[in-house]
Design a protein around this nucleic acid. Structure first.
Lengths: 153, 153
DNA sequence: TCTCATGTAACTTTTATAGTTACATGATTG
DNA sequence: CAATCATGTAACTATAAAAGTTACATGAGA
């Protein structure tokens, strides 16, 4: 299931990839993020299924964005990562016949659904390009990259 | 940290306690909820600190509500259980110097805060008495209790 | 055909939560 | 006052989910 840190990680990766003009390997991304290449592949695999990124094998292979950042919102990424901690209410189902438990769970479900709907609406309004330009404005140029200092391709 | 199932459990317990006219022991509550007495005590301890319930030791001791359900909202219970899965964004802090990571985290924090604010507002409008009467309406009388069939005091 | 990189299964490590045991403390009752 | 009951809490174990690791099959280029 998606965790919030996965969402943060995915956005971080996508924004870094946008600064590159060639495919980036899982290995490089992993070392930049202080994690493992398989973790990157698992995460990116989900994004690929939703048409957000592409992968290529072999020499000069790696990951590339399949759309410009301007056509990608936080909502797209959030949804691509699957049902999250909001929707996953994980409420008790110990006594499913108990009317009290039913009423409690229905009420909580409704409120959490509303909150998630608001979250999605907010996310839908933020394109990754907006995030990127925010970073560029702060640096007056290309962002500081975690990839810097890592082994070049 | 609070999980959503803890919130569900706490509400479940409070509504059941409201049907009783005497203190209920952790032992009885635990057996009704198919869990352990210490788990109940840990949960209720937090609620006591926020003035929601009271405890009494010794003979005929146990837990009682310290206010009527009409003066208790879901918001009160939610807050009493401490910072939750929404606020606890648990975002990456692997590369705290990276401008991209900073921008991503700030943006996510803002959106999650908004969602939690909505959730709290919704919760603030629902008193436990409203939940209780909803249950009573369904049964045309006192609710089916998980406590039923458990050892009487 | 050799090398590089993804794709994936299977396993281990880590971490958070729930559950358990044990015992000290305080309140009530006889 | 003493026996009993119930909370309060520390310390430990068990369980489950997530992250990380290893190993190897597959496919693409050079």
């Amino acid at each position: 299931m998606r965790t919030n840190s996965q969402l943060s990680l995915a956005l971080h990766l996508l924004l870094h990839m946008a600064e590159m003009n060639e495919p980036v390997t899982s290995e490089r991304l992993a070392s930049a993020m202080n994690t493992n290449a398989v973790v990157i592949r698992r995460l990116m695999g989900g994004l690929r299924e939703r048409g957000i990124v592409q992968s290529r094998k072999g020499h000069h292979g790696g990951w590339t964005l399949s759309r410009p950042l301007a056509e990608l919102t936080l909502r797209d990424v959030y949804l691509a990562l699957g049902a999250g901690p909001l929707l996953s209410l994980t409420h008790r189902t110990q006594n499913p016949d108990c009317l009290i438990e039913q009423a409690v769970n229905e009420t909580l479900d409704g409120a959490f659904r509303d909150a998630e709907a608001l979250l999605l609406a907010r996310f839908g309004e933020v394109s990754l390009a907006a995030l990127q330009s925010r970073v560029h404005a702060a640096t007056r140029g290309p962002a500081h990259l975690c990839l810097e200092g890592k082994t070049a391709p």
